[in-house]
Design a binder for these strands. Structure first.
Lengths: 208, 208, 208, 208
DNA sequence: AATGAATGAGCCTTCATTCAT
DNA sequence: GATGAATGAAGGCTCATTCAT
C-alpha cells in the first residue's frame, strides 16, 4: 500500500480532504486542517491540486466515480417489479451501508452539494446520478405502461428517489422527533421492503 | 415603533440576514455583507443581536414561527383521505408559493440546516416540524387503521414528507437532469394531485 | 445616602469606576463595564464626565484628596525619632489597612500610575505625595543634622519611601517566592517596628 | 540561519515587541504596531508565535533569561559585607545601566507585571528573581548571624530589594517632586555606596 | 437630565495562497 | 518534489463616542 515512507502525500491529502469536506463542508473546511491530517505541508494542497477548489473537484471525482462499472448486473430477464426491488435494494445499500466510511462521506458531501449547488454538481449528476436515473426511468416506464404521460413518469421517478434519499435528508429531523425509533440501518431489508411495497402501490394508483 | 427613512435598523438587519443566510449559508455569509445590505454599520449586528450566531437564531425564529396559528383549520368532519389531501396542499403551497421570497428563503435555510445541523435545528423541529408531523401521523393512523404496526406508521409518515420535501432537495438535480421539464410551481394543483394519489396508493398497499 | 431612586448616577459611576480602574487598569477598563456596574446607560460616562479620560481624572481626584486635612496632627513637641515612627505608622496604616476597599484600590491605581505615568501623575504627586514628602524630609533633616548634604537627604528620603512602598510593589513577588510567609497586614505593629529600626540604623550610618 | 536584508522576521518581531510592550504595556500594545516596526506582515505574529499572548511570553523568556549564568562570579572568600556591596552593585548596574535599551525595557515590563501580574509573573519570579533572592538571603544570613529570626531575615531581604527597586518605581515621582535632583544614573557609584551604607546600618540596627 | 440607537475605527486572528529555496 | 516562511485580504467582534430624542 506504501509507495514511500509518507505513503504518498497526494493521496493522503485526498483522503484527508474527503473526511474534512464531509465533516465541515467546503467553506468551513480549511486547507490547514486537511494538510494537518495528511501530515503534509500547508502548501501541499496548492502544490498538488492547484487550489482548494481543485482539491474539492478531485474529491468529487474520487467519491463519485464515473459509474460505468455498475447497473449492468441487473439481469434484464427479471420482471420490472423485481428489477425495481433490486434497484431499491442497491440504492439502499449504497446509502445505509455504513461499513465503509467513504459511502457515508459521499452522501454527506452530496447533501451539502444539494443544499448549495456548486459548479461541481453538474459533474456529480452527469457521472453518478444520470445512469441510475435512466435505469429507474426505464423500469418505471415498463411498470406504468406505454400510455403513461411523461409528466407522470417524471413525477414517479422523482418520487422513488425521494423515498430513498429522504431517509438521508430527514435523519437529523427524525433524530429529534422520535429519538428512540428503530434505526433504519439495522433493518435494511425491512426498509427496502417497505419502500418497494409503498412505491408499487403508488405506481399502481397512478396507472389505474 | 419607527417608520422613519431607514425603517428600523434592527428589522432591516433581520431582513438582510435572511437573504444572505439563505443565499450563502451561515459560514459563508459575512456580517459585513448583511450590514451593507441593511445600510447599517458593521457593529449593528453585534449591537442588536449580540453576535452573528445571535442574528442567525433570530432569523430562524422569524422564519419558523412557533406555528400555533395553523392546523386547527382542517375541519375534523372531513374523511381522513380528504384531510390528507388538504395537508399535502398546505405543505405544497408553503414550499412552492414563490410569491413571498420569505418562503423560498426559509426552505433554503431549512435545507442547509438539514445538511449540516447546527444547534438551532432543535428549535426548528420543535416549533415548526413537530406540530405538522403530529397532524400527519394522526391522519395516517386513521387511514391505515388501528392495526397498523408502529414501524409502518413511522415509515409512511416519513414517506409523505419525503414526497413533498424532495422536490425541494432534488430540484437542483432535476434542473440538470431534465432541464426542460414542466415546472412544479406552475402546476401546483397537478403536483398536489399526483402526490396525493401516489401516497394513497402506497398507503393502501401497506394496508392490504 | 440616597438623593434619588437611582442613588445619583454620577456618584454611582464614580464608585464603579474606582473599582474597575483599580481592577483592570485604565486601558483594559471599559466604559460599558463601569456603566453596567453603576446600572447606568452606556452614554452616562460621557454625559457626566465628558470622556473616559475625564472620568479617570475624577477618580484620581476622589481617591487622592488634596490632603490639606492631615499631617498637622503630628505634634511638634515629639523628638524627631518619635515623629519618624509616627510617620511610618501613618503611612503603613494607609497602605495595609484593608478595612476600607478604597485604600486598597487607591494603591492599586497608584502602582499602575507609577508603572506607566499618565498626565495625571502630576496631580497625584502634587496633591498627595508632596505634603507627605515635605513632612518626611523635615523629619529626616532634623535626624541627620544640619550638615548632611542635600544628596544624602534626598536619598534617605527616597529610602524610607522605598521601605514602605515596596511592600506594595513586591507583594506579588513575595506571594510567589515564599507563599507561606507571615502576612504583613497581620502584624502591622511588627512591620512598623521593623521599618523604624532599620531606617534609624540606616540614617545613623549615613550620619556617622 | 538568515542574515538577509530583513535579518530574520521572527527575531525582528521579538525585538519590536520588546520595545512596544515596554512602551505601551500588553493591553495597549497592538500587533499591528509591532509588525509595523518589524517591517513584517500583520499575520507574522500569529504565524511565528501563535498569538499576541504567545509573543508576550516569548518576550519575557528573552528578556528574563533563565539566569543560570550569573552569581558564581561573587567569590566566596570575600567578607559578607563585601559580598553585599557586590550584590548591590550588580543589581544597580542592571537597573541603571542604560547603555543597552534592553535593560531599561526589561524593567519597564517588570514594573507593569508587578502592577498587574499576568500568569507570566510566575515565570519571571522563578527564573529571574529566585536565584538572586536566594543569593541575597544567604549573604544577609551571614551578616545577621545565626540567631536572627526568620521574620527579620525576610524583612531585611525585602528591604534591600526595596532600596534598589524603588529607584525604579519612584523615579516618575521624583521627576515631579524634585525635577532638578542629581540623576541617579550619573553617579552610579554614589548610589551604590549610599545604599550599601544605609543597608548595613539598618542591618546592624536589627542585629544589636 | 438622561438614554437607546447607531457609528467608525480598530482590535486579534484566520484564511488560501505564493514565494524562495 | 516539496517545504517553511511570509503575505494581504478579510473575518467577527469590541471600543469609546455621538446623536436624536
Amino acid at each position: 500500500m506504501n509507495d514511500s515512507p509518507d505513503v504518498n502525500t497526494k493521496s493522503a491529502l485526498l483522503a484527508a480532504a474527503i473526511q474534512v469536506f464531509a465533516d465541515k463542508g467546503f467553506d468551513s473546511a480549511t486547507v490547514r486542517d486537511i494538510c494537518g491530517r495528511a501530515k503534509a505541508n500547508v502548501a501541499a494542497v496548492n502544490y498538488h491540486y492547484g487550489s482548494k477548489d481543485g482539491l474539492y473537484a478531485a474529491v468529487l471525482a474520487e467519491i463519485f466515480p464515473t459509474g460505468e462499472e455498475r447497473h449492468a448486473q441487473i439481469t434484464p430477464d427479471l420482471s420490472p417489479e423485481e428489477r425495481l426491488r433490486e434497484f431499491i435494494r442497491g440504492l439502499a445499500s449504497d446509502i445505509f451501508e455504513r461499513g465503509s466510511d467513504t459511502i457515508a462521506q459521499r452522501w454527506a458531501i452530496f447533501l451539502r452539494e444539494m443544499a448549495k449547488p456548486s459548479g461541481n454538481l453538474d459533474y456529480i449528476v452527469q457521472h453518478h446520478v444520470q445512469p441510475r436515473a435512466d435505469e429507474l426511468r426505464c423500469i418505471l416506464s415498463e411498470i406504468l405502461g406505454p400510455n403513461a404521460p411523461d409528466t407522470t413518469l417524471a413525477y414517479c421517478s422523482a418520487n422513488i428517489w425521494a423515498l430513498m434519499l429522504d431517509h438521508l435528508l430527514i435523519q437529523p429531523i427524525l433524530d429529534r422527533l422520535t429519538p428512540d425509533r428503530p434505526a433504519a440501518d439495522n433493518g435494511l431489508d425491512l426498509f427496502v421492503d417497505h419502500v418497494f411495497r409503498f412505491s408499487l402501490g403508488g405506481l399502481k394508483a397512478m396507472k389505474g
